[in-house]
């Protein structure tokens, strides 16, 4: 089979896709062919929303499940309950349609081992649970998950095709 010029162009474009870093407790949305990347998710949860029709995509790095447990909230993107609606409205602003959205989540790991596990803990699980619940309330279906366990993860959304790439220490790259 001959390789089509279109496919070659796509491959070329993939190689030079601009990476946009999403910091902790932060979110980024793009309507351009970009790679949104967040490094080192531990107990945090990464959420990508992608509209395949308009190729608008966004990535949110959630630290904590519930903002109502805090007196002052200076960064809504830190929390699942506030960050997800914020990501959704940003996607809308860029022309993405809620009905098209594909959600993928990663992270929520239990990073530490030891006798004192209880107190850190299950923050990862609570982040996962709140993310699922908030998405459900907003009517967004989760297409793929790579959550739990005890390893840190890097999450990358390719907005040319909606693929999410997961990098983990000591295991091959996974595409979800």
């Amino acid at each position: 089979m001959q390789s089509s010029p279109v496919r070659e162009a796509a491959a070329f474009q993939e190689a030079k896709l601009t990476e946009i870093q999403v910091g902790i407790a932060d979110l980024k949305v793009t309507a351009q062919p970009h790679r949104l990347i967040t490094l080192g998710l531990g107990s945090c949860v990464g959420l990508t929303l992608y509209d395949p029709a308009t190729r608008v995509g966004g990535l949110l790095h959630i630290m904590l499940p519930d903002s109502t447990q805090f007196n002052s909230v200076n960064k809504p993107a830190k929390f699942a309950d506030l960050g997800i609606p914020l990501l959704l409205s940003e996607i809308g602003r860029y022309g993405g349609k809620v009905n098209n959205l594909q959600a993928k989540i990663a992270g929520g790991a239990q990073m530490f081992s030891g006798l004192n596990e209880k107190f850190v803990l299950n923050i990862g699980e609570r982040n996962i649970a709140m993310t699922r619940q908030t998405l459900k309330n907003l009517g967004i279906r989760i297409m793929a998950e790579e959550v739990g366990g005890n390893r840190g993860r890097t999450m990358i959304l390719d907005t040319t095709n909606g693929q999410v790439i997961i990098r983990t220490v000591g295991t091959p790259v996974k595409v979800i």
Binding site: I24, L39, G40, L41, G42, S43, C44, M63, L64, A109, M111, F112, F119, V120, L121, I123, G124, R151, G152, R153, T154, V169
Partner: peptide
């Protein structure tokens, strides 16, 4: 990964 450990520690 340092980032995963650090963010988890900060939350904890």
């Amino acid at each position: 990964m340092f980032g995963a450990i650090l963010s988890t520690s900060l939350v904890a």
